[in-house]
Amino acid sequence: MHELSIASSLIETAANHVPEGNTLQGVHITVGDLSGICAESLDFCFSIVAREKGHPSARLIITPIPARFHCRMCLKDYEAASVYHTCPFCESLERDILEGDRFTIDAIDVEEINHV
């Protein structure tokens, strides 16, 4: 739902890092499964906003990060496709989140304007 405004701030942040005389070609981001971001929707919004804001060749490269938990009962770590999944070792839902809420812009690809 808010992916449009996120796409806007992504482009803005990325554009700030583009050296003079270069164009923005790609934006690499990491999206955790628990971050509440819909990657497909973000990708769609990004393509529109990029064009609107004068970066028509910029594309979004998304690295998804699955949710990882630490079980408070059996003390083992596990990966889960959904928050509904209990610990695969002891079936407990008592857990701490280790990974999955990350939402970062990692790098940008740029190209020199006058390069032949």
Partner: peptide, 15 residues
């Protein structure tokens, strides 16, 4: 040639 990848390493909502 003519391209580069620049590390950013920021939270998307950093602003």
């Amino acid at each position: 040639p003519g391209t580069a990848t620049i590390t950013v390493g920021e939270d998307v909502l950093s602003k």
